[in-house]
Amino acid sequence: MSLLEVAVRSASVLAAFLVLPLLVGQTEHKVMAHMQGRLGPMYAGGFHGWAQLVADGVKFVQKEDITPRAADRWVFRLAPAVALIPYLVALATIPVHPGVAAIDVPGSLVLALAATSVGALGTLMAGWASANKYALLGGLRAAAQLVSYELPIVLAAASIALAGGSLSVATLTDRWSPWWMVWQLPGAIVFIVAACAELQRPPFDMPVADAELVMGAWTEYTGLRFAFFLLAEYAGIVVMSLLVAVLWLGGWHGPFEDTLGWLWTLLKGFAVAVVIIWVRVAWPRLREDQLQRLAWVWLVPLALGQLLLTGAGVVMGW
């Protein structure tokens, strides 16, 4: 791999990383607004407020970057990067087209899942370093949530890996067949629910529950660092949606997949992102105990059952 190729791959991932989350964010603005009988942003950029998030970014850049005096200075300032960068790595591992992925490594599924788990560490660091009781509580809740929901995610992904006989996302997508949408369905549901929880999205936003914790671990953040946390959340939606798209929905499989494969991947990922937004609008926040109960009483057994089913299926040669 030449230096130029590395540069091109990095640049394209960075471009996707900066564009796709904004696209999802704008979709959230609009979809959520219409689900609540509103119009959403209408002014920024002229046409239906398409540039609203760009304007928000400009606003965040202008704000003062404040570090509280009591804060653990380096950890505090490093936390947004720790939250953001892992999703960039995870996004790089996702193949969008046959043979097209920024990082094509044999164990890309493991790499992607490992990277997304690191992202939550940024929230922990922010919560601890802020020297603020709300931030600390938010960080602790985030930690508890991470522990609970990491397991269903890994189990659901393991089921797919078992079914496809590989740990490489590209290979798994290659071996995907429509039949997977049926017998891997419980795993898909578990993965989407657990992904919402891992991203601390409503209805699993107990760590940032704004009515009781101000803004959770992000309470003390301002300006660009705060914007990085928000960007990390939307980048997380992109990564998780694309993972669901390539693992469960067949990624580039579709008509004219040799030329339009990338479009199918993005469209499927976008559809999953819309579902994640939809869930956020429709349901109220889960209480902390309900949240833990859902993970351990429902998701983990369901994921284990799925794993059992997949194992049986593979052995029986379905």
Partner: peptide, 21 residues
């Protein structure tokens, strides 16, 4: 209840908005 919530939001999204511009 969960499915009802999804149905309600989807139905609202299909209807005209109430926003007065």
């Amino acid at each position: 209840g969960i499915l009802k919530g999804l149905a309600t939001t989807a139905r609202t999204a299909m209807r005209p908005t109430h926003t007065a511009e």
